[in-house]
Design a protein around this nucleic acid. Structure first.
Length: 727
DNA sequence: CATTACATCGCT
DNA sequence: AGCGATGTA
């Protein structure tokens, strides 16, 4: 029963790019790519990123700060410092036409395609954050699973769908003619296309005959019709295009065709046919012919060591070479299990089932610290564990809310400069990011084999650090979702006992399509109120909040309502909540909001920032800033106890390596404080200035702020009022 | 020195 | 269960 199943693979077209294009529709149809920082400098050649900016080519440092923080389509560090390199992780099809590929560096892409727009991957806590893409992927899966419940999330942008049952049901109500026509109209039919020299057309008569005479072809055809409907729904509901393949199993035949397209494209033999926004049906009868072109190493699970082993020991490069060996021969060489798997695969048969699973089995994050960036002190290790733990905890909270499951296993893995790797794990309690970081640190501690126990040294240095949470268990759905998971800061009890700790609440967290309109108008009212009737200012602010609200977050309306009802229930909470938690009433603002303000308003703010006094000791302030970052999430900042701060401060300091053996000429000077840093420290350093400037605005405006009812001892909250009060 | 950042599989 | 290896975009 090799052909019993009908299986589709849906693969999003250059997914990260599409996600960015949906956020910023101006990028649609243009050559663009998503990039992330490489953490090392190289080349030193002058990079030409100027035209990535839509405005003038020269910026002062703060403008760049804002642009950078907004994650706009720039790599401005390259502009200023000319040594910061970015690597490409996704490429639009327009840019592919110029030969731009994944893993290329930003400057190479610019060479190949001068008009390319480079969009930075979002960053938080000093590392890439792929949350947007995961969430967009979840949107897609949600649409797909409405059509068929046997849906397997294969990666952030790919899903397998077992359509066998769905096809069976659908087929009973369809005429052969309808099946043949509809499938031919939507699908590239491998083996039934006629190339008239210019275009590919379906040999319809042959197709019609096959659909009628071959039940498996007919089932594939019905599958293709369903898949085209699914893709249509995905496009309509998410604005994303995808490509798909329909076959009898999970072998990613579609991918081979896409690769094939790429080769042809590079050889200038004509454009690709199977991607983007296309679907392809693969009859089993076409597999032998296809396999003559399919490199073994492109087959799933053959991209690594096994693939090398197979190819070298069998003198086989294409799948058709593999098909020359008997079952016995392959089993003798690779063992019964693998041998059989290889044999069947060579015949175009793959038993691997589609597993109905839309959620990943584990969540994790990590960062590489190559070369001199290695973590070589205990403080560096602690600092980065806290950053990673912060992200993980945030994602775990979301997971509990959205999917009612909690992880029971916490793991850490790392690679040392000696090229040795280890993983360790322990029980994961329901705990804070700080606790997670502590547990992780304890797991790592035995691997610090530095001889001098007194020193801060970590040896051998860590070049890769990854953490993960797994062994998820279902938890009962709570009737009242916890506030902390929405605001990712503290539980209500902690807020009550320690409300004065709360400084900034991010309206960005509220952003959600369901509540966007309501919140948007509230926000606009507040802005309008704060801008003191200045109509022009109000108008511009509206644009800003709309822009901000386009950014979908996965917070549910139910959750928001629950939060406010919780606020209402507790009279103790009420007052403090009013003051510091409820953005409907207080309209507090954080960096995220500032970053989305229109240029004119930003300029106003900038002017006030330029005037502000800088701390005499930027380094010290910087450490403080990072201690806040380290001990809280991006969007909710709360003070920790002084002891905690001190602890993390050391970690933050340790993360700076410009007192190491970098030559002076390799350092770059910060225009704002004249201090020198290694280039990879620059982004975080600039972030620090951003934060300091924010604090200064807030300090300077506290007397005039209408929100200054707090005792002077308490730190003033940063509010929209305080921004506009300076005018 | 240098792709990065995940995720799952398979062995003991 | 714990951990290292392998695989992927």
């Amino acid at each position: 029963m090799a052909l019993d199943r009908i299986v589709a693979l849906v693969d999003m077209d250059c997914f990260y790019v599409q996600v960015e294009q949906r956020k910023n529709p101006e990028l649609r149809g243009k050559p663009c790519a998503v990039v992330q920082y490489k953490t090392w400098k190289g080349g030193g050649t002058s990079l030409q990123f100027e035209n990535a900016f839509s405005t003038k080519p020269r910026f002062n440092i703060l403008q760049l700060c804002i642009l950078w923080s907004r994650g706009d389509a720039v790599c401005f560090c390259s502009l200023i410092f000319k040594i910061f390199l970015v690597s490409i992780i996704a490429v639009s099809y327009e840019a592919r036409d110029f030969g731009v590929t994944r893993t290329m560096r930003g400057d190479e892409a610019k060479e190949k395609c001068p008009d390319i727009t480079l969009v930075r991957v979002p960053e938080a806590r000093g590392k890439a954050n792929l949350t947007h893409y995961r969430e967009a992927g979840a949107e897609v899966i949600a649409v797909l699973s409405r059509f068929c419940d046997n849906c397997e999330r294969a990666s952030v942008d790919e899903a397998y769908i077992d359509l066998t049952e769905t096809v069976k049901i659908r087929m009973s109500g369809m005429e052969i003619n309808e099946i043949a026509e509809k499938s031919a109209a939507t699908t590239f039919l491998e083996g039934y296309m006629i190339d008239d020299g210019n275009a590919q057309t379906v040999d319809y008569d042959a197709w019609r005959t096959s659909v009628e005479g071959d039940e498996d072809i007919c089932r594939l055809a019905v599958g293709a019709i369903i898949v085209s409907e699914m893709r249509e729904a995905v496009l309509k509901e998410t604005q994303f295009t995808c490509s798909a393949g329909i076959a009898h199993n999970k072998v990613r035949i579609q991918n081979f065709l896409w690769e094939w397209d790429l080769e042809k494209m590079l050889a200038k033999l004509g454009g690709g046919r199977h991607k983007p926004n296309k679907q392809t049906l693969l009859p089993q009868s076409f597999v032998p012919k296809l396999f003559e072109t399919v490199p073994i190493k492109k087959v799933r699970n053959m991209g690594g060591k096994l693939g090398v082993e197979v190819r070298s020991s069998l003198c086989a490069e294409k799948m058709s070479d593999l098909a020359k060996y008997s079952l016995g021969e392959l089993q003798a060489r690779f063992g019964d299990k693998t041998g059989e798997w290889l044999y069947q695969l060579s015949q175009g048969v793959d038993r691997d089932p589609v597993r109905p699973r839309q959620l990943p089995k584990s969540l994790g994050c990590g960062k590489n610290f190559p070369g001199k960036g290695k973590l070589a002190t205990t403080d560096q290790v602690k600092y980065w564990l806290e950053q990673l733990a912060g992200e993980l905890q945030e994602r775990l909270s979301k997971e509990a809310e959205l999917n009612n499951r909690e992880a029971r296993l916490l793991g850490v893995g790392f690679k040392t400069e000696a090229n040795t790797s280890f993983t360790r794990s322990c029980h994961l309690k329901d705990s804070s990011a700080a606790q997670i970081a502590r547990d992780l640190y304890n797991l790592l501690l035995p691997f610090n084999s530095t001889k001098d126990n007194k020193s801060n040294t970590w040896y051998p240095g860590i070049v890769v650090l990854q953490i993960s949470a797994s062994k998820f268990e279902e938890v009962s759905e709570t009737s009242t979702p916890s506030i902390s998971s929405f605001f990712k800061t503290k539980t209500p009890a902690e807020i009550t006992t320690n409300a004065s700790k709360m400084e900034i609440v991010s309206p960005a967290l509220i952003l959600n399509e369901n509540v966007a309109d309501e919140f948007s108008s509230c926000l606009q009212d507040k802005i309008s109120e704060c801008s003191g009737g200045n109509k022009e200012l109000t108008k511009r602010s509206e644009t800003a909040s709309n822009c901000q609200l386009n950014d979908k977050q996965s917070v549910t309306k139910r959750g928001i309502e629950a939060f406010f009802s919780e606020c209402g229930k507790s009279s103790k909470l009420k007052n403090e909540q009013r003051k510091c938690r409820n953005p409907y009433q207080d309209c507090q603002i954080d960096c995220t909001v500032l970053k989305s303000l229109p240029d004119d308003i930003q300029r106003e703010i900038r002017q006030s920032l330029v005037k502000s006094d800088l701390e005499r000791s930027p380094r010290k302030q910087e450490a403080k800033f990072f201690s806040l970052q380290a001990s809280s999430s991006v969007s909710g900042v709360c003070k920790d106890t002084q002891a905690d701060v001190d602890k993390v401060v050391d970690g933050a300091r340790g993360s700076y390596s410009n007192e190491t053996d970098l030559g002076d000429d390799e350092l770059v000077k910060c225009e704002k404080c004249r201090m020198k840093f290694s280039p990879w420290e620059m982004p975080e350093h600039l972030d620090y200035h951003f934060a300091v400037d924010l604090q200064n605005i807030e300090r300077n405006s506290s007397e005039t702020s209408r929100c200054s009812a707090e005792p002077p001892k308490k730190k003033q909250k940063t509010t929209i009022q305080s921004f506009f009060a300076r005018k």
